[in-house]
């Protein structure tokens, strides 16, 4: 490991990115519920309030719609707000400001303004928080032109994508998986960015392409390790960015492997998998396919409370292994 690379958790990496952004640019400030002395529901802002003060690490009332609108207004008039939703589910309360305002103001005003706004959404299941605190709504927002939507899967990318988002002139929505907050990984010191709109190949392989997002990248890598023992060589692509989506990376990989499995936590139908599949169906990679395209996504149900049900509601490593075998060996 390079001297300037440390092991940080995903949450620490995000916190470090926000600190760097605030140190570099006085226009940057944080807004959210209980992000000050409480440190945020997932301790992502942590002690930042003690370092930067309450004016730059602002606790808001429990007013998601109004708070999001305040962030939009501040972004329109010279500031660079980073707005934390306590849970991504609460974005439903603020959809008006995100979808009708933040995403559209630049276009509606004929390109005369930009909305340099960053929003962070702790997302995903696995915490026993049940149906209203566990959703993966990233595909909802990725459906909206005017927004950019990213889903970092590693501490390195969590920091680099956040810094890229702050530098971006347009609204960037960052979906952070709650189960990743404590995951550690190498993170370089100082300022760097990870480009928005670029996928990353996490594992090279010949037999099957798995396109995965967020925590499903790690589950897919675990599945790939198991499959390697059986002689199935899996390529794992971490999508990282939903809008814009790096379709060339998916197409190139499928041309090599001739098989595609898409794994994501959001509800399976009408989601990320449909878009990834369509990218192949509409491209020259379609002619390379040796098997049907397959999707593994969240169950067609709200997220349940019972731990066994909760696990059953999202793809797990054995599901990915079974799907890969089916695609490669045509097993039933």
């Amino acid at each position: 490991m390079d001297a300037n690379v440390r092991e940080l958790s995903y949450a620490q990496a995000i916190q470090e990115a926000m600190a760097i952004a605030m140190e570099q640019d006085e226009r940057v400030f944080l807004m959210g519920e209980d992000i000050g002395v409480y440190g945020g529901a997932f301790q992502v802002t942590g002690d930042l309030v003690h370092r930067f003060g309450e004016d730059r690490v602002m606790d808001t009332p429990i007013s998601e719609l109004g708070g999001a609108g305040v962030a939009v207004g501040a972004a329109l008039t010279g500031m660079r707000p980073i707005f934390e939703f306590q849970f991504s589910d609460f974005a439903t309360l603020a959809m008006e400001q995100i979808v009708n305002q933040a995403a559209k103001i630049r276009y509606m005003l004929g390109g005369n303004v930009s909305v340099p706004l960053v929003m962070r959404f702790p997302a995903g299941s696995g915490t026993g928080a049940a149906a209203q605190h566990s959703q993966s709504l990233e595909a909802w927002l990725a459906h909206v032109p005017g927004l950019k939507v990213v889903q970092p899967s590693t501490p390195h990318d969590a920091k680099g994508l956040l810094l890229a988002a702050v530098a971006d002139p347009d609204p960037v929505m960052i979906f952070e998986h709650k189960l990743l907050y404590k995951m550690k990984g190498p993170v370089p010191e100082g300022y760097y960015t990870v480009p928005i709109g670029k996928a990353e190949t996490r594992r090279q392989g010949r037999d099957l392409t798995i396109v995965a997002t967020a925590i499903m990248v790690h589950k897919s890598l675990d599945a790939a390790a198991q499959l390697a023992e059986e002689g199935i060589d899996v390529e794992v692509i971490d999508l990282r960015s939903l809008r814009p989506m790096d379709t060339p990376a998916i197409i190139e990989s499928v041309k090599k492997t001739s098989r595609l499995l898409c794994v994501y936590e959001g509800v399976k139908t009408l989601g990320i998998g449909a878009e990834v599949s369509a990218a192949i169906a509409e491209s020259e990679a379609f002619d390379y396919l040796d098997a049907p395209v397959m999707r593994l996504g969240g169950a067609e149900s709200p997220l349940p409370y019972n731990p066994d049900l909760e696990k059953a509601a999202v793809p797990q490593v054995p599901d990915i292994v079974a799907a890969a075998r089916k695609l490669v060996r045509k097993e039933a």
Partner: peptide, 12 residues
């Protein structure tokens, strides 16, 4: 729609 945005501009 414009009311919270105005508050944001004022904060700014």
């Amino acid at each position: 729609g414009g009311i919270p945005i105005a508050v944001g501009a004022a904060l700014s």
